[in-house]
């Protein structure tokens, strides 16, 4: 198999970034704190790419993303806590199971509710998020290991930067290949105009459900990694306000742009932590205020998001370059 040019550069870029991080680790420039923040950023990247597929590319308004993130976290965390003991094989198996469970639940809930449109779909998914939260709070009645509202600890903390980075690379490639495949094109056409897509012979229900399941599975995967990086899971960490975080990352990044989602996810995580450092101890309670202001100002300055509909070259498969020319995908119009 011949590696296409862009894919080659993608890997070259990845290796360069990895080497940079490693060098900073060795020189002590990258302290464990910023390392943790970077890891968190990568986890959020994976989860946000999931929502990017669902909302950014397919146009299905979901306000319940954190619920799937939580489902993956609890599934993977509990499995590894009970069966694995820091074993790498179990780690990966638990991640896959977490993603699969999130995807399966997405399939079951998505089949009926994806018939709903825009805001109604949003509120239905938000409601589902609240149902999941209640389930997590009472989960210990069925499985005591889940801990319910007292939270769950004891998952082996085996996820570290190298693993998270490789997983992120794989996910980005996976999402890229999905987006630029016929499936992805079908999804984008649904976002642009569902009826027209239907008329063109696209099975809209099938593609909507497919995008929803894939996106939620990615959220589940991100959750699974979170469970192996942060030592404590609590239902409050996955409530509906967290879904807003994913949503604003995807929108600020620009609908229909993986690049935008990735950049904004990293930027968002770092912003929250940098504000902490910059504001110092005397202005701690201004952090929320400034964060909110930045949010409002940036959406007003760039209503279409950072990279609406545009991608970095590296993220476009070679054979599509001719096809897409200057504008690679259509600007996301939302709904």
């Amino acid at each position: 198999m011949k590696l296409s040019r862009n894919t080659f550069f993608y890997f070259a870029g990845a290796v360069f970034f990895f080497a940079l991080v490693k060098a900073m680790q060795f020189s002590g420039m990258l302290t464990p704190y910023w390392q943790l923040v970077l890891d968190q950023a990568l986890i959020i990247v994976i989860g946000a790419l999931g929502l990017s597929i669902i909302y950014g590319f397919t146009g299905q308004f979901s306000l319940g993303h954190a619920a799937f993130y939580g489902l993956g976290a609890y599934t993977a965390g509990a499995l590894d806590k009970v069966y694995g003991n820091g074993n790498m094989l179990f780690f990966f198996l638990s991640l896959l199971t977490g993603a699969a469970v999130a995807g399966l639940v997405a399939l079951l809930i998505g089949l009926p509710i994806l018939r709903l449109r825009s805001d109604y779909l949003g509120i239905a998914t938000l409601g589902f998020g609240i149902i999941v939260r209640v389930g997590m709070e009472n989960g210990n009645k069925l499985f005591p290991v889940l801990g319910g509202a007292t939270g769950m600890s004891g998952t082996p903390q085996v996820a570290h930067f190298d693993l998270i980075f490789i997983l992120t690379l794989i996910v980005i490639l996976l999402v890229r290949n999905f987006i630029f495949s016929t499936y992805g094109r079908a999804c984008t056409s649904i976002r642009e105009d569902e009826i027209a897509a239907d008329v063109m012979g696209i099975d809209t229900t099938r593609y909507k459900v497919m995008a929803f399941v894939l996106g939620c599975a990615l959220a589940g995967l991100a959750g699974g990694i979170y469970a192996h990086r942060y030592p404590f899971l609590h239902p409050a960490s996955f409530d509906f306000l967290k879904s807003f975080d994913f949503l604003l990352i995807v929108v600020l990044g620009g609908l229909g742009s993986m690049t935008g989602t990735i950049v904004t996810a990293v930027g968002w995580v770092f912003l929250l932590e940098v504000l902490r450092v910059v504001l110092g101890q005397n202005f701690i309670d201004w952090r929320g205020v400034i964060y909110a202001l930045i949010l409002v100002v940036s959406i007003i300055v760039r209503p279409q998001g950072l990279f609406s509909g545009k991608e970095l070259r590296l993220l476009i498969p070679d054979h599509l370059k001719m096809l897409t020319g200057k504008e690679h995908t259509h600007a996301g119009s939302g709904n």
């Binding site: 807003f244 929108v251 600020l252 609908l255 949010l295 209503p303 279409q304």
Partner: peptide, 13 residues
Amino acid sequence: APKIAALISAIGV
């Protein structure tokens, strides 16, 4: 702008 932009602004407010 797209409707979603105003929604994000509302969350910010």
